[in-house]
Design a protein around this nucleic acid. Structure first.
Ligand SMILES: [Mn+2]
Ligand SMILES: [Mn+2]
Ligand SMILES: [Zn+2]
Ligand SMILES: [Zn+2]
Lengths: 140, 140
DNA sequence: TAAAAATATGCAACAAAGTTGCATTAATGT
DNA sequence: ACATTAATGCAACTTTGTTGCATATTTTTA
């Protein structure tokens, strides 16, 4: 199963025209295997000690995946970035949910945030961040 | 004018039953004089060197003001907390706007976030964070 | 109004998350 | 296989926020 994710990751990376490196395949493979948005730290946990990957490299890979549209970054109140592959959510803007007990973050792909919010005169909207916080099904 | 803010600050603090200290009055006075949410760093700037105030004390005062309902914390994508007094916005949940050029953050008191967002089965909402990002009137 | 009690403040040291510069290594095109 | 280009690893750093504890300030009480 993980092999399939890695093959898929490799194919996705190839499609961008960027270099196919073992680190990128590893990280994107991990993201593809997840149903939720995961943090830098969680990715490191899943990597384990077999294939050590420098913190900085991981930051750069995640940044690169975001830039290429293969993943997106989710910002949260705990000052941790989380990442989720775009293949399930599309790249449109959507809301997120964060469980205040287990800190799980999921994409609420159905809640699109492109709605035109009323702003003071002269203000222009570019992007919207909407996070619902509460308890997930497992914690409620 | 600043004197008035300080008097008002003192009165607000007295009303909570907490101790009226010069540090608390100073910080709340600064918040009262602001039309936007300001960061820890911005508060320190406004204090200047006359009345030095320890970083840690400032953190604790802002936390205390929030707990007492005199101010609220605004979370943002730059990992900085910003604070705004509650007297203009009320303490209800509302959206915020962050200018992506000058980083100004304002409260959008008219946009209440208590709307019942559709969540997956079993999920429960407690709090909603909604930030519109774009250009403010001065930067647009 | 002076001492006692309760609470706030300052300082030092720390922690977590992310950034930068640069030398080394690996991937790709020829 | 070699040259070129881009990715990686490492060390040092920055920013933002936290913790523990001694000292100072408020408030209460006598
Ligand atoms: Mn998402
Ligand atoms: Mn606000
Ligand atoms: Zn949960
Ligand atoms: Zn602006």
């Amino acid at each position: 199963m993980l092999v399939n994710f890695n093959e898929q990751a490799e194919e996705m990376i190839r499609h961008t025209g960027g270099r196919i490196t073992s680190c990128r395949v590893l990280v994107l493979g991990i993201l593809l295997a997840e149903k939720k948005a995961i943090s830098h730290h969680e990715i490191e946990e899943r990597i384990g000690d077999d294939q050590p990957l420098d913190r900085v490299t991981l930051y750069r890979i995640l940044e690169w995946l975001s830039k290429k549209g293969l993943a997106h970054k989710v910002i949260s109140d705990d000052r941790k970035w989380r990442f989720r592959t775009n293949i399930y959510t599309g790249s449109h803007q959507h809301a997120h949910f964060k469980c205040s007990r287990c800190t799980t973050v999921i994409c609420l792909s159905d809640i699109k945030t492109e709605y035109c919010w009323p702003l003071p005169p002269g203000y222009r909207s570019q992007e919207v961040e909407l996070t619902v916080k509460g308890l997930c099904a497992a914690c409620a």
